[in-house]
């Protein structure tokens, strides 16, 4: 292979998209050609640079702005049906038709109330699901007594699947943080995918030295609602700003990793939190 042929294949090589045979030929060339090897190295350096870009934060009012535009897009036929002008026009045409339209409106109004009661968004003024707060509070209360039972409570509220790390990665399209090396002495007991209102959440249960248990949740959106009204403190651990709450004799903490939020439940203290952050925040494989 000459340099020109190799240069065309450097991106597929870098992205792991070359067949084994071609990869070997290109790598053979790279071992002998410093110029092409330097280009490949620069591709790697740019990838690292791209991963260091800070995660931009959409502003909190964005959904409200979208929702404000939505009724116009979805309610035109209803507006026509119920507009005073249209109603008068219909009334002029026929008193029978007027009665029929009125009946339809009454039925629609009744149906709307029933549908609203069944499906309306049970969120507080901050946009958090009130039921989620209650369910998660039960999880936190139960966790020190029986982590398995706490899990069962959570899974009773939200659909879940027991998976392995690879299956989880396939479903959520990222390598879960618990696939990194866990803090010393900890082993991974189970991984579940839980369909929570925020996202498809990766929930893992780990056992540590002396049988201590820690749950790790990886989620797309910050969920302060999980901790309810418990007093929270902020700490700066290993370069990450984490929010900690105390429950029973243990702590739960949440922080933002490079791309997602991580929550650990059942840690002893800030030192242990620092250790978890150091391990879970390693670059994704």
């Amino acid at each position: 292979m000459n340099c020109s042929e190799v240069r065309d294949l450097l991106s597929p090589l870098h992205d792991g998209e070359l067949s084994a045979e071609l990869r070997e030929s290109v790598e053979q060339h790279l071992r002998e050609c410093p110029a092409c090897a330097a280009v490949r190295t620069s591709f790697g350096a740019m990838s690292l640079l791209a991963r260091e870009l800070p995660e931009p934060e959409p502003h909190a009012e964005l959904w409200n702005q979208i929702e404000a535009e939505l009724p116009r897009a979805h309610s035109r036929p209803v507006q026509w049906l119920l507009s005073a002008e249209s109603f008068r026009e219909l009334a002029r045409r026929s008193r029978i038709l007027t009665a029929a339209v009125t009946a339809v409106v009454l039925v629609l109004a009744g149906t709307t109330l029933v549908v609203y009661d069944q499906f309306h968004d049970r969120r507080d003024s901050n946009g958090h699901d009130e039921h989620l707060a209650v369910n998660f509070d039960q999880f936190l209360n139960e966790f020190p007594k029986s982590p398995e039972h706490a899990q069962e409570l959570l899974h009773a509220s939200y659909p879940s699947n027991l998976v392995d790390v690879d299956q989880a990665a396939f479903q959520v399209k990222y390598r879960p943080a618990v696939s990194n090396r866990l803090p010393k002495g900890y082993t991974l007991d189970s991984v579940h995918l839980v369909r929570m209102p925020c996202c498809l959440c990766v929930e893992a249960l780990c056992t540590g030295p002396g049988g201590s248990r820690v749950a790790v949740l990886e989620h797309a959106i910050d969920q302060p609602v999980w901790f309810g009204d418990r007093p929270a403190s902020e700490c700066n651990c290993g370069g990450r700003k984490a929010r900690m709450v105390k429950f029973d004799s243990h702590y739960a903490a949440t922080w933002k990793s490079a791309r997602r939020y991580l929550t650990v439940i059942g840690i002893r203290d800030e030192d242990e939190l620092r250790e978890w952050i150091q391990h879970l925040d390693r670059p994704e494989a």
Partner: peptide
């Protein structure tokens, strides 16, 4: 089907990716 709650859920699932 135009379900507003579902629209909100879809937004919550994907808005960070779209914004980024």
């Amino acid at each position: 089907s135009g379900d507003r709650t579902a629209q909100r859920q879809l937004y919550e699932l994907h808005h960070r990716r779209v914004y980024r």
